[in-house]
Amino acid sequence: MEWNTAPANVRSTNGRQALFWKRFKKQKLLHLFVGLGIVFLLIFSYSPMFGILMAFKDYSISTGIQGIFTSEWVGLDHFKEFVNDYQFGTIVRNTLMLSFLKVLFTFPAPILLAILLNEAKNLRFKRFVQTVSYLPHFISWVVVVGISFSFFSVDIGVVNKALMGLGIIDKPLAILTSPNYFWGLSVGSAVWKEMGWWTIIFLAAIAGINPSLYEAAEMDGAGRLARIRHITFPGMKGTIVVVLILTIGSILGGGLVGSNFEQAFLFGNTINNPTSEIVQTYAFKVGLKDGRFSYAAAIDLIQSVISVILIFSSNFIAKRASGSSLF
């Protein structure tokens, strides 16, 4: 990483400039990478942000893009409307619960799987498990939800049939059509779908641990659990903290597995609506279906603000608690 080391004692501005360009030339490939990333962010993340103006205006889609600037200001009316909505409490509770439960279960799962796989001695078995566990990542949610019908439907679902056959239940469980099962269904399917994928990154972290540490520990008489606790786990800590901060930043979207919207939208129906309606699906409904873009923009803006607060506070806490942080 020699490009990071700046030579000391640069005197004249001229010399400094020349040096700058020399260094720039040397690093041009890296600058190209960074530049592309910045352009990407500018086009897809920053430039659409002027649309936030909508949240404070009475915008109608038929006025086109310029309407965003010409329409009337209404201040915080849309925000007030959302907060006073009869479903506001339910929607916010659902969003927070779903997000919280998902992080609680989907975050530790890949870490555990990575440690388990690391301990598996049979290489073939390890590869097999890894492949099988990360393949679901490539199935889209639409397909997962489609498949889930043949598993969980009251009428034809394999799971219900099996449980009934074994005499564990005497009435089929309305897993897909009851507010009581929606969170479990979402968290369960998210763990199944994304656990293997995120295991890869933790396995990479484990692979980076110096094997001599294990040998030394073994010599000192550390057992398997002790080695996991004192070597594997501390070796992964940096990665875990980075991933955790990213997770918490996107917690309202479902954390590292994302998919809050997809699940609420696809698994959601009029019956499980009391637990499946979340901020994003609500914004989608009022925004696209009812064409109330201003109101939808205001709703999403509230969510973005909460996310920003969460990422800063988790970063702060991580810095305090473990010394490592994202920024």
Binding site: W197, I200, A204, G238
Partner: peptide, 17 residues
Amino acid sequence: MNRLVLKRLYSSLVVVL
């Protein structure tokens, strides 16, 4: 962690992202 490990770790992180 040494540098090599860091490099490996971050490159895998980049790939995943």
